[in-house]
């Protein structure tokens, strides 16, 4: 039951993009086309799940055990960078099709704050191993959802007559604000 709660909470109620503002850069940058947004979302979900699976043991069995949790930021960022590199190498060798779809997004994911944020929140909330993996996956699903919705709206927006000063980043941010308002509707989902 707790796992389902974590899943719903991380993907809908506390959506990383719309309530914690993590992963805004790709959210603004790669949300022009639905297809790109979907591929980016899938690649990020994959990396996020793996990140949770890798950083949790590092934190619990190395950093806490040797009493150096203050090194966690350095350790996490190195772990994430190495992980992304390995995933890229593996995908390039094993499946050129997936590599063509996801490859160009992988280096960007290293500097996606949502991935590091995920590792930090996971430690802050003291999840156990299974919960962390579910949390990582759910966060990725929430990110993909937000990306997809945003790209859908932006594709429609191409035909809209937006005033010149609002074009580009500005209108995208205002739309994101409206989406954040809409997502607040999910807040009653668990407590109610």
């Amino acid at each position: 039951m707790k796992l389902i709660l974590i899943f719903i909470s991380a993907s809908l109620i506390n959506n990383f993009v719309l309530t914690y503002f993590l992963g805004i850069c790709p959210f603004l940058g790669v949300s022009n086309k639905t297809e790109d947004a979907l591929n980016m979302g899938l690649a990020t979900t994959f990396v996020m799940t793996l990140t949770a699976a890798v950083t949790w043991p590092i934190y619990t069995y190395i950093l806490v055990k040797f009493n150096v949790p203050f090194l966690s930021y350095v350790a996490f960022i190195i772990a994430i960078a190495a992980l992304v590199q390995f995933v890229e190498m593996y995908i390039r060798k094993s499946s050129p099709t997936i590599y063509r779809a996801m490859g160009i997004y992988l280096p960007l994911i290293t500097t996606n704050c949502a991935v590091l944020g995920l590792a930090l929140f996971m430690v802050l909330r003291e999840y156990n191993y299974i919960e962390s993996i579910i949390f990582g996956f759910a966060t990725g699903v929430g990110f993909t959802l937000a990306m997809l919705m945003m790209s859908g709206i932006r594709e429609e927006l191409e035909f809209a007559d937006v005033p010149e000063v609002f074009q580009g980043v500005s209108i995208t941010l205002i739309i994101a604000g409206m989406m954040a308002l809409a997502f607040m509707g999910f807040a009653g989902l668990i407590r109610g």
Binding site: V169, A176, G177, A180
Partner: peptide, 10 residues
Amino acid sequence: LPAGAFFVFG
């Protein structure tokens, strides 16, 4: 709320 941040920034 988060929405306000997006609006002000936009």
